[in-house]
Design a protein around this nucleic acid. Sequence first.
DNA 1: GCAGCATTAGACCGATTGGTCTAGTGACGT
DNA 2: ACGTCACTAGACCAATCGGTCTAATGCTGC
Lengths: 206, 206
Amino acid sequence: MIEHSASAAPHAPPADTRTRLLRAAVTLFQQRGYHAVGLAQILAEAKAPKGSLYHHFPGGKKDLGRAAIDWLTESILRPFKRAKEKDLAARVFIARLFHGTGSWLAAEDFSQGAMLAMLAQGAMTEEPELADVLDRAYTRITMAMADLLRDEGMAALRANEMASLILAALEGSVTLARAHRSTMPLQRASAAIDRVLAGEGLKKER
Amino acid sequence: MIEHSASAAPHAPPADTRTRLLRAAVTLFQQRGYHAVGLAQILAEAKAPKGSLYHHFPGGKKDLGRAAIDWLTESILRPFKRAKEKDLAARVFIARLFHGTGSWLAAEDFSQGAMLAMLAQGAMTEEPELADVLDRAYTRITMAMADLLRDEGMAALRANEMASLILAALEGSVTLARAHRSTMPLQRASAAIDRVLAGEGLKKER
DNA sequence: GCAGCATTAGACCGATTGGTCTAGTGACGT
DNA sequence: ACGTCACTAGACCAATCGGTCTAATGCTGC
């Protein structure tokens, strides 16, 4: 979800094995989910032998999962930092977030999805370690969002509520969008949220 | 998600094999996701031999998945029908929807999740048939929600937007709630939405 | 040049996957 | 009493799962 740079550079030079492995894992997990992806697929996609995998990720698949979550979390958090630096209005940032996610989803022909959500739903019960990582990841993202809203003068309580709502709506919209193979759910949710933010008194400029 | 009656009666009498299989499938898919659940587990949970599975669901796992989606869709739609019959105010209904989902999630110790979402994310790419079923399921649910809102006098366009937002927020909140093992995300999203609906002029009574 | 170590390469492992198939078993209509 | 047929039971299958292990390879500091 949100982040669209799984394939950062168009023709990334060789890239070291660890990176290739990680990138392959992220892409495939986003596409099909943690359990549905076999090590063989990841290995094939990354063009790496099994030995390398267990050298760089001694914990095996779980380790890869953990690293994938971390990687994704950082790339989600990055735009927030940028928005804060540029002093971007929250309303604008959030609208762009939804729009950008929609574009990415469409460009990927809806083959990619909300990986964090998928892991949250699936891998959690059986892999408690992943659960912790995921918990922290979501906390950080929610806080970043609430932070942005508080900067616009929203009261802390309300900012927390709205941050939760927006994040949930974003994740949920991605799910709906994939099911419908359409960005409509994203657009609708985005429009509704923008109206709400306007109602809260947020301006489009600062 | 939403529906909490996977185990309808406390001590349901024997129940025929087909039903037992379906119930087991729904529960397990919700817990761990489509791919993570093996037929063996389903068979064990349902106390049925493999032969019965392929007798009642000739298409195998895919068939079970399809049936599980249908079953779940109906049980999600049911409360909507009831609300409409009872002429329940949309705001009240939606608040109860979130609250009920939270209670259920907590009661299940966050082991159950949003199955439709999980399938949407995971099984879609590789099982196009499931994708269609899921698409229709979501459409029906969204329409039911929009319908409810229109009954309160909301304009069609706005009702569609809000329905998408609410549904996405619900699904997303369940995901967040599972990750955090807390109903907080549900409560926050619910509070935010209720305020929005109030802002749209909806009353708590009709 | 060589020792040492990080990395690669992939054969191999037992367990489990979804799926097929044959052999019953038992209730029901006639 | 007998045939029929819906259903149960589980042995069996190839393919794949995640994971381990040994051998070779090649870069590094000395």
